[in-house]
Amino acid sequence: MTLKTLFTGLTLTFGLPWLALVVMPYASMAKIKPVAYDEEKDELKGFFPPARSGSEARGQELYFNLGCIQCHTQVIRPGYAGWDEYKNGWGENQKPGAPSYTRATTPWDYLGENYAAIGVRRVGPDLANAGFRFSSRQEVLSYLYDPQQRGKWNSCPSQRQLFTEVKGAQLSAQAVKVTGSRYVPAEGVQIVPDADANALADYILALKKNYQLPASLGGSKPAAAKAAAPAPPAAPAK
C-alpha cells in the first residue's frame, strides 16, 4: 500500500465519524438556549432553566476536581433506558415507598455547565435531584464531613479536608454538628466549613433538575401543589 493511499484512506475513514459524530453535533447543541416561560400557559415568570450563582459554579468545579463525578451520575433516563423516572427518592418526593414520577432530564437542564455532569458510574446514587434530599445546608455539610453517619454500608468518602477545626467556647453560627461520626471533635473544638465546602453545599442544594418544562417544550404545569414550584429567577442562564 502506498503512503498516499494509506493517508487518504485513514483521513477519510476517521474523518467521517469525526465530522458527523463529534464536530457537527456541536453546532446544533450549542444553539440550545434558555427558554422564557409563557405567563399564561405556564403561570410562571422568568426563564427555564434558572441561572446559576457563582458559588454553584464553583461548587461544580469542586465536584469534578475532587472526583465526585467518578461515582455519581446526574441524569434521569426515560423509560426505555431504565426505571429512573419512578426510582424511589431520585426525584422531589423523598418519602420511602411512595411511587412518584420525576421527569426525564432534558438538554436544557445542563445549560450553564462547562461539562455536563452526567457521570460514568452509579457507585453512589444519582444526584440530578439531590437538592431535595437534604433539608438544610447544615445537613449537607454534616454529610460531606462524614458520610458514614448514614450507615456503615455507605462507601462515600469523607471530605474532611474542606473543614477547619477551630477552638473556641462560643459556638460559631457556621459550626457543623456531627452525630454518630467516627470523627468526634475534641472538647471545645468546632468544625467550621471552608469556603469550598460551602460552595459544594450550595451546588448540591441547587441540584433540582425537575423544574417545570415550559409549554413550548411540551411541558405542562403540575396539577397540584403549584405553590411548591420553584420560584422563577429573574435573569436567564448563560
Binding site: 456541536y26 447543541m29 450549542a30 440550545i32 438538554p107 445542563y110 462547562n114 455536563a116 455532569a117
Partner: peptide, 8 residues
C-alpha cells in the same frame, strides 16, 4: 463553553 452536554 458552548455546550456542556456536547463536552460530556
Amino acid at each position: 463553553s458552548g455546550s456542556g452536554l456536547h463536552a460530556a
